[in-house]
């Protein structure tokens, strides 16, 4: 796939100090996908990566049109595209599932943040709001409006579902971090050394996942 991808690399924004090659973007999006899949809560969105990868896919598809039918490269490129597309879709689906499950919690957390810090993309945010509004409409038409007057409220606090941040996750350490305090009986401090793999509660390492210091696996 290097050939066709190399053609489009000039379209990519290379102003960052970090190397920003198509291969790197793919790696990043795979990491984001794994993190999202295993983290109990929703993580900051990576829409730049998604947009960038989708753009590349359409460029690759353009390039493929130049190849003759039956060319072996065609099948290989197509397979590669299908795989990338699966990763992107699976990543976005996972986020949607979390949004649907924890709608109220996610929206109220998100309201506390400025638009730039928001974990949701504008599209996801709109979807979350509509999803909540639709549920409320259904609850009201079918049940709430027929209940005794003082029981008609749509009690947001009682309907909120929160992710279980104390669930355990597997992780691999990218950058060494010292002095992680695991909540629990002994208040042990743990040092994470680069390359180590651990099974640990999500809560104390949540910020490390978001910074990229650790990778969930």
């Amino acid at each position: 796939m290097d050939d066709s991808v190399a053609d489009v690399s000039e379209h990519l924004d290379s102003s960052d100090n970090e190397e920003f090659t198509p291969g790197k973007v793919l790696q990043d999006i795979e990491n984001a996908w794994l993190n999202e899949k295993f983290a109990p809560e929703i993580l900051p969105h990576q829409s730049e990566l998604v947009d960038c990868m989708l753009e590349q896919i359409s460029h690759m598809e353009e390039n493929m049109k130049k190849l003759k039918k039956g060319d072996i490269r065609l099948a290989i490129h197509k397979m590669e595209i299908d795989r990338i597309r699966f990763v992107i879709k699976s990543y976005l689906r996972t986020r949607l599932e979390k949004i649907e499950q924890y709608t109220i919690h996610i929206l109220s957390e998100d309201d506390k943040k400025s638009p730039e810090e928001s974990y949701l993309t504008p599209g996801e945010r709109k979807f979350a709001k509509e999803y909540l509004a639709n549920i409320e409409t259904l609850f009201r038409t079918v049940a709430l409006q027929h209940m005794p007057a003082n029981f008609q409220a749509f009690e947001v606090d009682k309907l909120t579902v929160k992710p279980n941040l104390n669930s355990h996750v597997f992780l691999r350490v990218n950058k060494p971090v010292q002095g992680i305090i695991v909540p629990g009986t002994t208040n042990d401090e743990i040092d994470l050394t680069a390359g180590a793999q651990r099974l640990i509660q999500y809560q104390p390492i949540a910020s490390l996942v978001k910074e990229g210091a650790v990778q969930l696996i």
Binding site: V50, D51, S58, K89, G123, K126, F127, E130, Y131, N134
Partner: peptide, 19 residues
């Protein structure tokens, strides 16, 4: 309505590239 919200969202992915 759910279908509609979902369709709107899917159309908006990737700078309105749609997915």
């Amino acid at each position: 309505s759910y279908s509609k919200a979902l369709a709107t969202y899917m159309r908006s992915i990737g700078d309105n590239y749609g997915l």
